[in-house]
Simulated scan of single mutants.
Amino acid sequence: MEITDNEHAYLNALMLAIMAPNEKKSLECMKMAASIEPHLTEKQIDLCKKGIEVCMEFLKQSKEDKPETLEGEFIPTFHD
């Protein structure tokens, strides 16, 4: 994946901070995001954060709605 602008880099740094395997890595990513913020407008920062919040909520809901399966496999269901 090629990062082409500051907004894209900021989004990736925030997501990596959330998904980091440990607190040390998360803090590194939060520092990266903070170093990018001066290059963005307040509106860009707000939209990036809100976009991530929406995605995280969607993923949380998707996980809660996932049906029980055998051996942890996901079996898609289709609704009419």
Rank of each mutant, 00 (worst) to 15 (best):
M1Y: 14
M1L: 15
I3A: 05
I3W: 11
T4L: 09
T4Q: 09
D5I: 00
E7I: 14
E7Q: 14
H8M: 12
H8A: 10
A9P: 07
Y10D: 01
L11G: 14
N12V: 02
N12S: 14
A13Y: 02
L14P: 01
L14H: 01
L14R: 05
L16C: 07
L16D: 11
A17I: 00
M19E: 15
P21L: 11
N22Y: 01
E23D: 12
E23C: 01
K24G: 07
K24V: 10
K25L: 06
S26Y: 03
C29H: 15
M30H: 13
K31Q: 14
A33P: 01
A34L: 09
I36Q: 09
P38K: 05
P38Y: 02
H39C: 14
H39Y: 11
L40N: 04
T41G: 04
T41D: 04
K43R: 15
K43T: 14
K43V: 12
Q44L: 03
Q44T: 05
I45Y: 06
C48M: 12
C48Y: 00
K49L: 13
K50G: 04
K50W: 10
G51F: 11
G51Y: 07
C55E: 14
M56I: 09
E57M: 14
L59D: 11
L59M: 13
Q61C: 03
S62V: 08
S62C: 07
K63W: 10
E64S: 03
E64F: 08
E64V: 06
D65R: 10
K66H: 02
K66M: 14
P67L: 01
E68C: 00
T69I: 01
T69K: 03
T69A: 10
L70K: 12
L70G: 10
E71F: 02
E71W: 00
E73I: 13
F74V: 07
P76T: 07
T77V: 10
F78P: 00
F78S: 09
D80I: 08
